[in-house]
Simulated assay, not measured.
Amino acid sequence: MLRPALLFLAAAALMAGVLLLMGRGLICPCGYINLWAGADVGAEQSSQHLFDWYAPSHLIHGFAFYAGLWLLARRLPLDARFAIALLIEAAWELLENSAIIIERYRTVTVSSDYNGDSVVNSLADLLAMAAGFYLARILPVWLSVTLVIGFELLTAALIRDGLALNVLMLLWPLDAVLEWQQGL
């Protein structure tokens, strides 16, 4: 159990260092850290605290990475697959917080006030992915699939967004989806 923890700490330190070099704030500009930033999804502080409405998406990343790496690289040791998942998630956090993706979120999604994540929020996202990865390892497949569907339905119902909608709107924005997300 020590090796996965060390892999996580190494990935987290590397990702946090790069995010700081990119100019991301360590914590919310408001000067404090909330455990949950559950207020308005589009608010400036929504991705600045520890966990937010998108934490389930990162948990789903862990389920997906476990499944994908089991299918494509099951001969690799679990620690190697976990390291790959950590690198993919950390790379996504870096890309998600790049100027080009932040601007993309602002122009084609419901997140018009998105300013990127704080470093602590990105670290919590990495932790959520790691939890999803190890949950997928121990849970029956049917329960993992049920949880993924449940999280997607829950976030769609509560915030009109989720992993599938987020990816759709980033890659192929649809006016009808944007209008629904805006409550129009």
Results as ranks from 00 to 15, higher is better:
R3F: 09
F8Q: 04
F8I: 07
F8G: 10
L9S: 15
L9A: 15
A10N: 01
A16G: 14
G17R: 03
V18D: 08
L19N: 04
L19C: 08
L20C: 13
L20G: 13
L21N: 03
L26H: 02
N34G: 01
A37T: 00
G38N: 14
A39K: 10
A39E: 15
D40Y: 05
V41E: 15
G42I: 04
A43H: 07
Q45Y: 12
Q45V: 06
Q48S: 14
H49D: 06
D52S: 15
S57H: 05
H58D: 00
I60A: 07
F63L: 08
A64F: 10
F65C: 09
Y66P: 09
A67T: 04
L76P: 10
A80T: 11
A80W: 13
A80Q: 04
R81W: 11
A83V: 03
A85R: 05
L86W: 08
I88W: 07
I88R: 00
E89Q: 14
A90H: 05
A90G: 13
A90N: 11
E93W: 00
L94H: 09
S98F: 06
I102M: 06
E103M: 04
E103P: 13
R106F: 10
R106L: 05
S111T: 10
D117L: 01
N121Y: 13
S122V: 06
L123E: 08
A124F: 02
M129C: 13
A130I: 00
Y134L: 05
L135R: 08
I138M: 12
L139K: 03
L139P: 13
L139F: 04
P140G: 14
W142H: 04
W142L: 06
L143I: 11
L147H: 00
V148T: 08
F151Y: 11
F151Q: 10
E152H: 01
T155W: 04
A156C: 07
D161G: 05
L163N: 02
L163M: 14
A164L: 12
L165W: 05
M169S: 11
L170Y: 11
L171Q: 07
P173G: 01
P173D: 09
D175P: 02
V177H: 13
Q181M: 04
L184M: 13
